[in-house]
Each structure stands twice: as structure tokens, then as C-alpha cells.
């Protein structure tokens, strides 16, 4: 429930923020823009600004969403997690950073899509901690990597999910 229609409150990476509509943010402002330009959370990337590439993915109340397709006012009362909100030793960050095993390539090249992939994968693993290879591919198919690291990205997610377990 919106208590004060002139204000938007949201919890971002654990801290509450309040914005006054009209003064701090425009009614038409997207969540991605608010996160980047008001809060300086530039790990949220905007590449297509039309929901086609996934670079701006964040968690909203635990669900991976495209922040360029969400109005900031629509996030009132929500709990938002961006890549900056993940722990330094988050297994997904480790896995994307370290992926270099033979036959797969690296999980990132230019890196612009990477935080979006990490957050989409985070949403997946939170819901399904042991996804199959096919489930990973389906879940990440809304994210574009123009450098084409898909083979290594899928592998990195598989490794992060497996934790200490061996991946074949």
C-alpha cells in the first residue's frame, strides 16, 4: 500500500531510501535510472533500454527483473538488490571472475553484460539451487552477451550452483 502518494520508498541493498516524486524523481523515471543516477549504483548497466538485453537486471523482492522496464514509482515498498548488494565472495561473482577452464573460454570479455547475467543467475539459483544445464540456458536466454561468452557463462553458473561439488 502506498501511504504517501507523493513519496516512493524502497530498500536498496539493505538500506531504505525515500524519493519525492516531482522533486527527486520524475513520475516517468525508470528504476534503472534511479539506481544509476540517484544512487550511483553503476553496476546496473543500461544497454538497450527496452527490455531486450538483460544488462539492467536486478532482484526485486527476490525476482530477477529488468530495471529499465520498471518505473521507479512502481518499486515503492520493494526490496531491491543490485550486483553491488551481493557479497564479495558470492559464488556467482567468483565463478564468473575465475572461469577459465579448457574448452569454454572466459565467462566475460568486455564485461558490460556481466552484472546482468550475475543477477539473473542469482534469481535462478535462489529459486532453484541445482538447475540442470537446460534450465540454466532457459533462465539466461533473456540476457545478451555480444562477446558471445555463453558457453562459459552457463558453465560458471553450473559451477556456482555446484559449490564444492565436482562439475563434470
Amino acid at each position: 500500500m502506498v501511504e504517501d502518494a507523493s513519496k516512493v520508498r524502497m530498500r536498496v541493498n539493505g538500506a531504505w531510501h525515500e524519493f519525492e516524486i516531482g522533486r527527486d524523481i520524475a513520475p516517468s523515471e525508470t528504476l534503472s535510472r534511479l539506481l544509476r543516477e540517484r544512487l550511483g549504483l553503476t553496476g546496473v548497466k543500461v544497454a538497450c533500454d527496452q527490455g531486450a538485453c538483460g544488462a539492467c537486471t536486478v532482484l526485486m523482492d527476490g525476482m530477477a527483473v529488468l530495471s529499465c522496464m520498471q518505473l521507479a514509482v512502481g518499486a515503492d515498498g520493494s526490496d531491491i538488490v543490485t550486483v553491488e548488494g551481493l557479497a564479495d565472495d558470492d559464488p556467482l561473482i567468483e565463478a564468473f571472475a575465475e572461469q577459465a577452464e579448457p574448452g569454454y573460454g572466459t565467462a566475460l570479455q568486455c564485461g558490460y553484460c556481466t552484472p546482468g547475467f550475475v543477477m539473473t543467475a542469482k534469481g535462478l539459483l535462489d529459486e532453484n539451487p541445482s538447475p540442470t544445464a537446460d534450465e540454466i540456458r532457459q533462465a539466461l536466454s533473456g540476457n545478451l552477451c555480444r562477446c558471445g561468452c555463453y558457453q562459459a557463462i552457463a558453465r560458471a553458473v553450473q559451477r556456482a550452483a555446484a559449490g564444492a561439488e565436482e562439475v563434470d
Partner: peptide, 26 residues
């Protein structure tokens, strides 16, 4: 050799700064 890229961590955790991250009103 098969090694992780030197900036892999900073790209994975969103700390790498690209132009649009620098060129901001903040």
C-alpha cells in the same frame, strides 16, 4: 595458460567503470 582475466572480478561485481558510469551528474 588457462588463467582468469586480470579484471574479471571487477567486471563480475560491477565495479569496472565504463564511460556512462563516469559521465554522470553525480
Amino acid at each position: 595458460t588457462y588463467r582468469a582475466k586480470i579484471e574479471g572480478r571487477a567486471k563480475a561485481n560491477g565495479k569496472t567503470e565504463y564511460l556512462d558510469d563516469i559521465a554522470s551528474g553525480l
